[in-house]
């Protein structure tokens, strides 16, 4: 950790191996938008990674993520890992994994898709590829381009 310019955290979540450049999108997913934040959030962008050249890292103190947030992160950064820290120790560590079907966390990019109207249905996508993420809308059959812009 000596390369890092921030100190270890006591309790919270470290989201590691975020695709380079995606850290700010991860912040948006976990709802770190400014005034609503009650604990320290550290963001490291473009740091060296042993696995894949460069990576981003986000540390959120005193907070654990819910499964929907983890699924959303997996959409924009399929190699990310989640480390849950309790009392300075890594209590849990896992890699994000996209489910086979993604429901209700992204909206269809096709403005003419029926799911973008006021119908009582959640969006639903078949995951055709994990890395890179390729999602096909089960309603209009289109491939979703630019996934990060369509996260709900």
């Amino acid at each position: 950790m000596k390369d890092f310019r921030v100190t270890p955290i006591r309790n919270g979540t470290v989201i590691d191996h975020i695709d380079c450049g995606m850290a700010l999108k991860v912040l948006r997913i976990i709802g770190v938008t400014g005034e609503n934040v009650r604990s320290t959030v550290s963001v490291l962008m473009h740091v060296p990674s042993k696995k894949a050249g460069w990576k981003d890292v986000v540390k959120v103190e005193d907070r654990e993520l819910d499964p929907r947030e983890v699924d959303k992160i997996s959409l924009i950064s399929p190699r990310a890992t989640i480390n849950i820290i309790r009392d300075f120790n890594v209590a849990e560590k896992y890699r994000v994994k996209l489910p086979e079907v993604v429901r209700g966390i992204v909206r269809c990019g096709n403005p003419n898709c029926i799911t973008n109207l006021a119908e009582p249905v959640e969006s639903e996508f078949i995951v055709e590829s994990q890395n890179p993420s390729v999602l096909r809308c089960i309603y209009c059959d289109r491939i979703l381009e630019d996934i990060s812009e369509h996260i709900i």
Binding site: C108, N110, N112, C113, I114, T115, L117, E119, V121, C137, I138, Y139, C140, D141, R142
Partner: peptide, 23 residues
């Protein structure tokens, strides 16, 4: 006129739905 309308209809109908063109 909207893509995916027939899939949505099939989701809500217990009777068979035949798509005659959606958008």
């Amino acid at each position: 006129p909207h893509e995916g309308a027939a899939r949505l209809a099939a989701h809500f109908s217990t009777k068979p739905v035949i798509n005659a063109g959606d958008g």
